[in-house]
Amino acid sequence: MVPLLTTPLPVPHGFTTRLGGVSEGPFASLNLSAATGDDPERVAENQRRVLSAFGHPPVAALKQVHGTQVHRVAGPGLWEGDGLLTRTPGLLLRVGVADCYPLLLYHPQGAVGALHAGWRGVVGGILPRALELLAGWGMDPQEVHLAMGPGIGGGCYQVGEEVAERFQEAGLPTLRPDPQAPGKHLLDLEAALLLQARRAGVREERIYRVGLCTHCQPTLFSHRRDRGRTGRMWGLVMLPPR
C-alpha cells in the first residue's frame, strides 16, 4: 500500500510522498509525473498504485500554469489552471507539487476542492478565489475545512526583491531578510496562505496542516533542493461515492 499523509479533513484525501513506487535515481521512488523525464511505464505504475488506494475512481486533473484559474467541474478530464472544485461524489481531484503547496478543501454542504499554490498563485489569491466560487454555490467560507499539505518552508525559500515587493503590495508581509544573503528574503508561503484563509473567514479549528518542509524532508520531492531534476507528488481529495 502506498503511504499517504492525511489530516482530519473528513473526506477521502491524501498527500503522497516519494515512498512506495518503482521509479529510480532522482525520481525514486513514487514519482507521479511523466513530464520529469522519468520512464513513462514506471510513472504509470506509480499512478496506478496511488489511484488504487482510492478505488480507481474517475479523475479530474490540471495542466498547471502557476496561476489562479479555478475550475468548477462535474466529471473527469484535464483543465488548464491551478484549481478544481466539484460537487460530484466519487470524482477524485488531483494536483501535482514538488515545493508548491497542495491545498484541499471540503464544505459540508457537499463540495471539495484541490489547489496548487506556488508563490504566484498565493500572491494572486488562488485560495480566496476558490472560497469565492464556493460562496457562489451558496457555501459559507466559515464552514470550509482546509488541509494544507507539505511545501517548501519559510526558512528554506529564498526570493529576490521583486517577489518580496509583490507580497508586500498584496498585504502579505510574510517575509524576512535572509541573514546569509544581502538583498534576498525568506518567504513563508504557508504563513501567507494561513493569513488569507483567516481573512476569508475559515475557522482556525478547521485548518489542518501537515507541517512538513519539502526542502528539508528527504522523503519528499523538492524542485529547489534537487535543482529541477526530481519527481512530483500529488494532493488528492474526493467526496465519498454514493
Results as ranks from 00 to 15, higher is better:
2 V>E: 07
3 P>H: 07
3 P>S: 07
4 L>C: 15
7 T>S: 09
7 T>H: 05
9 L>Y: 10
13 H>W: 05
14 G>Q: 05
14 G>C: 06
17 T>M: 01
18 R>L: 11
21 G>H: 03
25 G>S: 11
26 P>S: 03
28 A>C: 05
30 L>T: 01
32 L>E: 10
35 A>Q: 12
41 E>H: 06
48 R>G: 09
49 R>I: 09
49 R>H: 09
49 R>K: 15
51 L>I: 04
56 H>V: 06
58 P>N: 03
63 K>E: 13
63 K>F: 08
64 Q>F: 00
64 Q>W: 14
65 V>A: 11
66 H>A: 15
68 T>C: 08
69 Q>T: 05
70 V>N: 03
73 V>D: 00
75 G>Q: 07
75 G>M: 10
80 E>S: 12
81 G>N: 08
82 D>F: 07
82 D>A: 01
83 G>D: 04
87 R>A: 15
88 T>S: 12
93 L>K: 04
93 L>A: 02
96 G>P: 04
100 C>T: 12
103 L>F: 11
105 L>K: 03
106 Y>Q: 06
110 G>V: 06
111 A>W: 10
112 V>I: 04
112 V>H: 05
115 L>D: 05
116 H>Q: 14
117 A>N: 15
118 G>S: 07
126 I>Y: 10
128 P>H: 02
132 E>I: 04
137 W>N: 07
137 W>D: 14
144 V>M: 08
144 V>L: 01
148 M>N: 00
149 G>T: 11
152 I>D: 00
153 G>M: 06
154 G>I: 07
156 C>N: 06
157 Y>Q: 05
158 Q>P: 07
160 G>K: 13
160 G>I: 13
168 Q>C: 11
171 G>C: 12
172 L>I: 10
175 L>M: 13
176 R>Y: 11
176 R>G: 06
177 P>G: 00
179 P>I: 12
180 Q>P: 11
183 G>P: 14
183 G>Y: 01
184 K>T: 15
185 H>M: 04
186 L>T: 07
191 A>S: 15
192 A>S: 11
194 L>C: 02
196 Q>L: 15
196 Q>Y: 10
197 A>K: 04
199 R>W: 06
200 A>T: 01
204 E>R: 13
205 E>N: 06
206 R>C: 04
210 V>E: 02
210 V>L: 07
213 C>P: 10
219 T>H: 13
220 L>T: 09
220 L>C: 15
220 L>M: 13
220 L>D: 09
223 H>V: 14
227 R>K: 12
228 G>L: 14
229 R>Y: 00
230 T>Q: 00
231 G>Q: 09
232 R>T: 12
233 M>F: 13
236 L>S: 05
